[in-house]
């Protein structure tokens, strides 16, 4: 038992993560070719506009469901909304935000763009802390859009093109279908004024997504409403990222490796549940922590991956080369 544990704790998490991400990328983007269908309540951005999607992003059906006329929505249809939501929750609570770091195809694409950026030799940027605090609210605004826009359609206040208002502006809609050779989303819709505005914003965001991924790690995840949605329910999730503040030396290694620039991971020595709304649960911080048992991941209170001194030294020797050019 101890051997297995040691093996896991000394494992090279980045390789493990790469393969898992590739696996999920194939499942979600090309699942249709293998007749895989994991339903349409998946808590990641595996875009439903991709014709071969192997499991659909929950936001597309959610918006369609919420856009029904209100009397329908509040009567029989509420059951289907509830079923979709419960399915979403069941998927989500198992892996918590690890969906972002390990399964989300849009996140994987950004990681690959980051890899490309490293090869090309462009340096990356970070936000200053005040910028960070202001910008992090955007995802909640987008989440409000996801929920309120279709309800507005159901109320008759907004036109039908607002039904999937978030999808219209989501870069995932343009980029994901490209992987199955579908470029049909890269167009402006002039059928109504708001559709024209929404699709224009969508393509502008797509442009920003691509440029942003070259200057910032996980550029889009910072604004992702799914991440906000995850965070709301993360307290009930089974997989947890925990911290033992008493043992923390505040060295800041975890903060330095964090793709999402979460300051709390190093600064906060009070909370045991260290998961924050921006976190993508990539577990890089656990791997980078030089102390024993300070950061650990547990599944239903059973620790499965811990920071250890031994693991740290092992990984540092391996990662020393990569670290240099970062």
């Amino acid at each position: 038992m101890k051997k297995i544990r040691d093996f896991i704790n000394r494992a090279d998490i980045s390789k493990f993560r790469f393969w898992i991400q590739l696996f999920f990328f194939i499942i979600f983007i090309y699942g249709g070719y293998f007749s895989i269908n994991l339903g349409n309540s998946i808590p990641v951005f595996s875009c439903g506009y991709d014709k071969e999607v192997g499991g659909m992003c929950y936001f597309l059906p959610l918006q369609h469901q919420l856009a029904r006329p209100l009397d329908v929505l509040l009567s029989a249809a509420s059951i289907s909304v509830a079923i979709g939501f419960v399915t979403f929750l069941l998927w989500f609570i198992v892996f918590n935000k690890a969906w972002c770091g390990y399964a989300c195809p849009l996140g994987t694409m950004q990681d690959w763009l980051t890899g490309l950026r490293k090869r090309v030799g462009i340096s990356y940027s970070t936000y200053t802390q005040p910028q960070f605090n202001k910008l992090k609210k955007i995802k909640y605004i987008l989440l409000a859009l996801v929920i309120l826009a279709p309800i507005g359609v159901g109320l008759g206040l907004l036109g039908g093109e607002w039904r999937t208002a978030f999808c219209e502006i989501c870069p995932g809609r343009m980029i994901t279908p490209l992987f199955v050779g579908d470029t049909s989303q890269w167009s402006l819709d002039f059928s109504t004024k708001s559709a024209a505005v929404l699709t224009t914003i969508g393509l502008i965001f797509t442009g920003l997504f691509i440029v942003g991924s070259f200057i910032k790690k996980r550029f889009f995840c910072f604004f992702c409403p799914m991440s906000a949605m995850h965070y709301i329910f993360s307290d009930v999730a089974l997989l947890k990222l925990r911290k033992d503040g008493d043992k923390c030396t505040k060295c800041g290694d975890c903060y330095n490796v964090c793709d999402m620039q979460i300051k709390d991971i190093a600064d906060d020595v009070q909370s045991t549940n260290i998961l924050r709304d921006d976190c993508i649960f990539c577990m890089k911080c656990v791997a980078a922590c030089p102390e024993d048992d300070v950061l650990y991941v547990d599944f239903i209170n059973y620790p499965i991956f811990k920071s250890t001194k031994g693991g740290f030294t092992k990984r540092m020797q391996m990662d020393s080369l990569e670290k240099k050019d970062d």
Partner: peptide, 16 residues
């Protein structure tokens, strides 16, 4: 009749 790829690409490329 109402969708334009040209403008779409233009919007994305100009932004980039």
């Amino acid at each position: 009749a109402y969708k334009s790829y040209a403008y779409g690409l233009l919007a994305a490329v100009v932004t980039m």
